[in-house]
């Protein structure tokens, strides 16, 4: 049993369906993520990963149940909740007409940072993510990997306590993936809780200590990666994934 004060995310009896759609996405879903954990949420296409992340970030409202982040109810949607989370969506969710500096300046302000804090964090992040030499160039001319790094920088500019990442390394080269994962590990060492989804399971194996597999709106299993592999007698996360979710194609419409 984990005390509430030790939890970064606590989801209890979550119920959700999309308005105008009869199908229930989640019913009575429970999930707990400890503070400072590197937590991986995996599942096939259409399993409900992105929907669950949208509920955690407050982008969608649950029909029933509660979601608390560091003890704060997400449904209250107050600025305190928003300040403690950082979100790195799957899409490049920023202004491609602007440079990395201009994007960070804008999103930093919206994250509640002062002018000086934005300046300091911008320099730090551009150095860490290797974007210093293109700091004033328009992002729409960047490669996919550079755009991913800008996407990540914006998500962490305000040093969030919980960082939610929806496939942060999709479509990037090995070097960029390596840099992103290293940076995420660094953030975690400094106390940031990571909630991460990806289809890159080999990459996830190195990053995540705790894993949950989700399918058709249900958490199939949740434990540390070591325990899960031992329990299901599998050698890799990918094997475990196929074993528990099956090998059939999933058509997510």
């Amino acid at each position: 049993m984990v005390a509430d004060s030790e939890l970064a995310v606590n989801i209890e009896n979550l119920g959700f369906h999309y308005p105008g759609n009869d199908g229930v996405i989640f019913s009575g879903l429970n999930l707990k993520v400890r503070k400072g954990e590197r937590f991986g949420l995996f599942g096939p296409n259409g399993a409900g990963k992105t929907t669950l992340l949208s509920l955690i970030t407050g982008l969608l409202s649950a029909d029933s149940g509660t979601i608390t982040l560091l003890g704060n109810d997400v449904r209250k949607k107050n600025n305190d909740v928003n300040k403690m989370i950082g979100f790195v969506p799957q899409d490049f969710s920023y202004y491609q007409e602007l440079s990395p500096v201009e994007n960070l300046e804008f999103f930093g302000a919206w994250s509640g940072l002062s002018k000086q804090q934005i300046r300091t964090r911008t320099d730090e992040l551009l150095d860490i993510l290797g974007l210093q030499n293109v700091r004033n160039k328009q992002v729409d001319k960047f490669s996919g990997g550079m755009k991913r790094r800008v996407n990540l920088a914006i998500g962490v500019i305000h040093n969030p306590a919980i960082l939610i990442l929806d496939e942060p390394t999709v479509g990037v080269d090995v070097q960029t993936r390596h840099a992103i994962i290293n940076y995420l590990m660094e953030l975690n060492k400094n106390g940031t809780t990571l909630i991460y989804t990806s289809h890159q399971l080999s990459e996830a194996e190195g990053l995540c200590e705790q894993v949950a597999l989700i399918d058709v709106g249900r958490i199939i299993t949740q434990d540390s990666l070591t325990n899960l592999l031992k329990e299901h007698k599998q050698e890799s996360l990918e094997e475990l994934f196929l074993n528990l979710t099956g090998k059939e194609y999933r058509n997510d419409i």
Binding site: T57, D80, I85, D91, W110, S111, I154, G155
Partner: peptide, 17 residues
């Protein structure tokens, strides 16, 4: 379309701004 709205919604600022 670019998803900027989505990210803005997760930040501690009202879209009224």
């Amino acid at each position: 379309v670019s998803g900027s709205f989505v990210r803005l919604k997760t930040l501690p600022t009202s879209y009224a701004v």
